[in-house]
């Protein structure tokens, strides 16, 4: 921030608020901290959902005077949200958050990674537990040799994903998952991903 004097602050009312990194409270605390450090804060706002590109652009426009006075926009949202903002202003945009994963919320302040959005889902066969995400190696054919007493070699506090799958399938009387799963189709995960839904024809396509 040292290269910039005047700052406009953007928070996000969605995940960043739930994660306590970009809600009203944090935006306010950041404003105080910036001012203590000698910066000027020209204004601040909380977007409903920073990831909504068009809506973010529209909401940002309402603050154009305060943004015009700023040298930089500091965004307290995930990287996706920060990029909605950087797409709709000519000012430099910095992000104050370093996001780790798409998390489920266990309870306030406790998040768990369960889905990698990989485009080649096998949840229906694995008792609704994703091995792509919750196995440290993303293995598709059962546990590796590092599993010990049902726990993962990478994190001894964490149950092996394949043991969890095995236990839940057993509980549901669905037997041990026995299909030999072929190598994953990573072509579904082309970067950058772009999914397009044609509302007129009803057709979907991955571009």
């Amino acid at each position: 921030m040292k290269d910039y004097q005047a700052v406009f602050l953007v928070g996000c009312g969605s995940c960043a608020t739930v994660c306590k990194v970009g809600g009203e409270e944090e935006v306010f605390a950041t404003q105080e901290w910036l001012e203590e450090c000698g910066h000027e804060v020209t204004g601040s706002m909380i977007l409903d959902e920073a990831c909504h590109i068009m809506r973010a652009a529209r909401e940002i426009r309402r603050f154009r005077d305060q943004i015009a006075d700023a040298d930089v926009l500091l965004v307290l949202s995930c990287g996706a949200g920060a990029q909605s903002i950087s797409d709709c202003t000519d000012k430099p945009v910095l992000t104050g958050v370093d996001p780790l994963f798409l998390g489920n919320v266990r309870r306030f302040g406790q998040y768990e990674e369960k889905c990698s959005l990989c485009g080649d889902c096998i949840l229906n066969e694995t008792a609704g537990i994703c091995p792509v995400t919750t196995c440290a190696k993303g293995l598709l054919n059962g546990p590796c040799g590092g599993m010990e007493d049902g726990y993962c070699e990478v994190d001894r506090q964490q149950q092996c994903a394949w043991v969890r799958i095995y236990q839940r399938l057993e509980k549901q009387q669905r037997g041990v998952f026995s299909r030999v799963v072929e190598p994953k189709d990573w072509s579904r995960k082309f970067k950058p991903g772009k999914h397009f839904i044609d509302r007129c024809s009803g057709k979907n396509s991955d571009l």
Partner: peptide
């Protein structure tokens, strides 16, 4: 290694 059923499946 345990659980044996699971290990044997692999």
């Amino acid at each position: 290694a345990e659980p044996q059923d699971l290990v044997l499946q692999k």
